[in-house]
Amino acid sequence: MLEARLEQAQLLKKVVDAIKDLVQDCNFDCNDSGIALQAMDNSHVALVSMMLKAESFNPFRCDRNIAIGLNLVSLTKVLRAAQNEDILTLKAEDAPDSLNLTFESSDKDRISEYDLKLMDIDQEHLGIPDTDYSATISMPSAEFKRICTDLMAMSESVTIEAGKDGIKFACNGDIGNGSITLRTVQDVENKENNIEIALTEPVSLTFSLKYLVNFCKAQNLSKTVKLHISNEVPLLVEYAMEGGSYLRFYLAPKIGD
């Protein structure tokens, strides 16, 4: 059986909030290393890969592989009843037809308990190989969100160009064009403000801004975001959380002429 206790419900609330507009029905695949999810959006252009490591829970118990088939709209309805600071416990049997959730207020004067019906989801799984990306950019997640939102006002796609001079986000729209270039920033006092660019070769790829803006809903999970880019493969946008947990988004590029 699964028993997983989160010190603060907000972790799960934020994760589900960040992905629920991209994927609806998906399996939480549980085993002794944690809770994983991989799901593509309907158009097969974007993919969500979540890993909540056992270390992010206290305690975490799961002695065999359990697939928890969830509708994220339904899960959101239940999670809305949890306060951010509540202690959240997930429980499920080995072959579950429901997921038990309890929310306990931190001063323990209120315990809410919900059982959510599960679904049988036959999910398509993609094998994503470990990749050495040509460019890895680490930046404040708020900055990435601002760039995507600003450019989306002008165009539906953005070209991300990483070179030795920095990283450039450029768009071309009906009303004109625009670009934002970022250079390396080293803020010793506040490392969250750093912009780091690791480059093995220059890259330039075009992506749909609609999806990137959607990924930015994960901004609350982490103060920094990492973009991994190579000319030959989809973009990887990664939000790292405590305990080695992460939320990753993969986005297939658009191909120019």
């Binding site: 158009s43 252009v45 799984h125 493969v233 993969y250 297939a252």
Partner: peptide, 14 residues
Amino acid sequence: QVPQIILEQYYKSG
């Protein structure tokens, strides 16, 4: 308008 590639063109199913 530039064509949108899908993920299966890069990653295998299964």
